[in-house]
Amino acid sequence: MELAAKNRFDGAPIASRMGEVQKDLAKLFEHANVDFLRSIPQPKSFTDYLGRKLFLFLLSLQGIGAFALITLGVLLRKRQVAVKVMQPRIRQEIRRSGVDLLPMFILMALGLGFLVVGQTVAALAKVGAINYLGSTMVIVVVRELGPLLTAMLLLARVGTAHVIELGTARALGEVEVLETMGIDPVHYLIVPRVIGMMAGMFSLTVYLIIGSLLAGYLCAFIQDVPLTPGDYFKELARALSGLDFVLLGLKTVIFGFFIAIVACYHGLAQPLRLEDVSRVAIRAVTQGVVVCVLIDLLFIVVYLLALA
C-alpha cells in the first residue's frame, strides 16, 4: 500500500504531488502511512508545515492506539496459550525492566533525595513552613517527579532496547518466521515486554519515591534541620490520601503500558530495513516522551477534579 501510494506520484513535479495530496486527503489517509507523508518534500508555508506535523502526529496516535488495542486483546485472549513458554519470557522481561535496573534507581533515588527533597525540606524549615512539607513532597515526588522520572529512565534504558531488538528482528524477517510456526508475534514478542514494563514501572517508581524521601530526610539531617524522623514521616503520611495510592498505581501501570506499546509499535508494526532501525528508535523515544506527558496531563485533570 505504501509503495502503491508512492508510485502514484512518482515522476510528477513536486507542486503537483502536493496538489494531489491536498485534493485527495481522504484517500491519502486511507492509503498513505507516516513514512509516506515524511517522504514528501517539506512545504514552504509555516501553516502547511504545522498542518503536516499535526497530521503526522494524528496518524501516529491512530497507529499507536490501534496497536495498543490489538495488544490488549491478545493479552487477555491468549493468557492461557503456551503458558510454559510465556511465563519464563515474562519473568525475563520483568527482570530486565525492573530488577536489573534497581542499582541505577537506588542511585537516582539518592540523587533526587539530596538534590531536590533535601533542599526543599531545608528551605521550608528555614522559612518556618514545615507544615507544608507533606503536601509539597506528595505533589512533587509522589505525584509527579517519581513516576515521570521513572518513565523517562525506563524509556531510555529499556524502551530503546525494545525498538532496536524488534526492529532488527523485523528487518531480518524473524517476525515472518514466527508466523510460519503459528506463533502470534504480538503474543510472543510484545505481551511479555508490556507486562515486564508495567511491573517494572510500578515497582521502580515505588522504590524511587521511598528512596528519595529517605535520602531527602538524610540530607535535611546533615544540614541540621530541626526535624525529627517521626515528624517528617508524620507530615508525609498526613498529606497522603487513598486517592494518591490509587492514582499512583494507575499512572505507573499506564505509563509502563504505553512506553512498551510505543517502543514495540515502532519496532514491529511496520516493515523495516536494517538502516531504518536507528531512525525509528529516535522517533520512538520522542513519541514516548510526548505520550507520557499527555498521560501525565490527563492525571493532573483527574487530581484537580478529585480535589474539586
Binding site: V81, V83, V85, G182
Partner: peptide, 11 residues
C-alpha cells in the same frame, strides 16, 4: 524446539 514448545505447551 520453539514451535513444539509453543504449540504443545511443553517446558
Amino acid at each position: 524446539a520453539l514451535p513444539l514448545r509453543y504449540q504443545r505447551n511443553l517446558d
